[in-house]
Design a protein around this nucleic acid. Structure first.
Lengths: 337, 337
DNA sequence: TTGAAAGCGCTAACAT
DNA sequence: ATGTTAGCGCTTTCAA
């Protein structure tokens, strides 16, 4: 479909009685043209409903006006909210985003990068710091600015913006310990970042001489059902029957499932068992009891990622290569304080 | 950023000892070339890491390989899941999707269509049948295939795929009536489709001589908090104190909020009040009690929309212009059966 | 302030 | 089976 119409810049030029280059200037630098000319051109544009072909423009100028964004999942609200903010910010700067979904697979991500490369985006937004080596090398070869979000590393492809998952895991553990919990379990997703949080979480517990009272690793996308099942398993293996117990979940959704399963088993939260989530998603504060969680500011993350990527595209070498947005623990009713 | 490199088809041609058109054919119709040639070309590609410039290709062939999709919100799981399926299907056919968010605003949608048009997508996926007249005329002028999803109309721009919201609202009302509910309230979002469901819902109640026992119209995006508040209002205005009561919510998320608020007020569902949602989102079956709802098959919707759009792009005029995917009522524990 | 000319990197007849 | 020749619709020097 050549869509729009056979109306091109030449058409407008003819109607306005100028040459195509003048029409081009009327769009890109109208102030450098005489007022009358610009007016005649705009009139012709209105008359014909002409919409400049950005694809052709991109080819000629070598600026596609396009950014590629690859996230693990767009149905996972945590990434959706993040990329939504990113998109809003870059749109203000005139960029269009091609959004792709890797499904947490490095292989898929690599393929998507290749596909995206074919459209010559001016920059890339990736999720995480874990990429296949072919993916890295392709990106490096392309020389396109790259922002890796949701994590930090000493050696980003270009620049990374996120927070330390180890610190977050440790922070969660410390919070539970400081509240006096002694029997602590964890229900974690199996993606790299969640596992990194888990490792630090368990290490911190160990250093506080609290033994890990149960662990469930969940595969796939976090859902209420998986959260319910995780708590079911833990509960049936005896967790919660001794001492002050709490469970840390690697996602608010899982924590929510745990809350529901506990409720349906007649186990009271936080009286009998404390529950802690991760993410501070929209719904966390509205649950009953309200969910204690680790807050990640997704809108700041999206904004910073956009800002950094655009700065890099604009050739700003001064951009910090490692932007830490931090996190915070939000204490709510699902844990006894 | 000209990204990738200065490697072009000419580079590959030189290395492989052929002309650029041969290289082009090696990608588009390798079977029409001698094996040796293809091999030499692919070897050169591998060697250099060459990635064809689809932007240039699109310009020359007048096929951008791109589709524009505009949804109300990507953080609303219902649209995210739908568009996710759509994307998966069209990718199989080699299409890239530029995803945009209208925020339920017709004005925004119109602007996005204009922006998208500049990139000459081969087709459009829109949400709903309600568009500004300028939006419609631009699309018509462009002559691009358009699929309007999530609703049905006798006069689509091109083709529509969805279900009857009036039927769905009526169906929900009938279900409640058939279960013997006599005091019925509704909590609805304020978007056009939800309001259409409400109107049919209330009309059906009236024709069954059941008076509407309360109505809350909610603005914005459905959240648990809004659902809780809606039930709070209803409850405080006396709803639920007389007769067999139920509340129909225009979204599962709202219904979930209602469940939580009822629980926190010590009101038992379904014993004291029945709750019915809309959408049958992933979590509906995992709530406690499991949520009765109207099921819309979002994966079928996404698939059908993709299928229809591609058929239109392929010039198939035989495509049905009105594809009804229907809906069904799923009875679960949140209503007494 | 505007025009002329030369591509951007590729595809698509048309030849051979 | 491959090469030649024109563009696709725009931007961008370089002139005037």
């Amino acid at each position: 479909m050549q869509t729009t119409s056979p109306i091109t810049m030449a058409t407008i030029a003819r109607i306005a009685g100028v040459t195509p280059s003048t029409v081009s200037r009327a769009f890109s630098q109208p102030h450098r043209l005489s007022q009358g000319t610009v007016q005649r051109i705009m009139e012709a544009v209105r008359l014909t409903g002409y919409v400049p072909n950005l694809v052709a423009g991109g080819l000629a100028s070598k600026r596609s006006g396009t950014l590629a964004a690859i996230v693990p999942s767009i149905t996972n609200i945590i990434y959706a909210a993040f990329v939504q903010n990113f998109i809003i910010h870059v749109r203000e700067r005139g960029y269009q985003v091609m959004l792709m979904e890797s499904g947490f697979s490095r292989k898929t991500e690599e393929e998507l990068v290749t596909i995206a490369l074919g459209r010559r985006p001016e920059g890339f937004l990736l999720t995480g710091i874990n990429h296949s080596s072919l993916c890295r090398s392709r990106l490096l070869a392309a020389g396109a600015p790259v922002v890796e979000a949701w994590d930090l590393t000493e050696s980003p492809i270009d620049v990374c913006v996120g927070f330390s998952h180890a610190d977050a895991g440790r922070g969660a553990a410390r919070h539970l310990v400081s509240l006096g919990y002694q029997s602590i379990a964890i229900a974690t997703m199996d993606d790299a970042r969640a596992l990194r949080r888990r490792d630090a979480f368990l290490a911190e517990l160990a250093s506080a001489s609290i033994s890990n009272s149960g662990q469930v690793v969940i595969e796939g996308t976090p859902t209420l059902g998986l959260g319910r099942r995780a708590f079911g398993q833990l509960s049936e293996s005896g967790f919660g029957s001794a001492g002050r117990s709490a469970i840390f979940c690697s996602s608010d959704v899982i924590a929510h499932g745990v809350l529901i399963e506990a409720q349906s088993r007649g186990i009271h939260v936080p009286e009998q068992i404390g529950v802690m989530g991760f993410g501070d998603q929209e719904f966390a504060a509205d649950l009953n009891p309200a969910l204690t969680t680790v807050r990640i500011d997704r809108s700041v993350l999206g904004a910073k990622a956009a800002e950094a990527l655009i700065a890099r595209i604009d050739g700003n070498e001064m951009v910090e290569r490692r932007i830490d947005i931090g996190f915070s623990v939000v204490q709510r009713a699902s844990l006894i304080s």
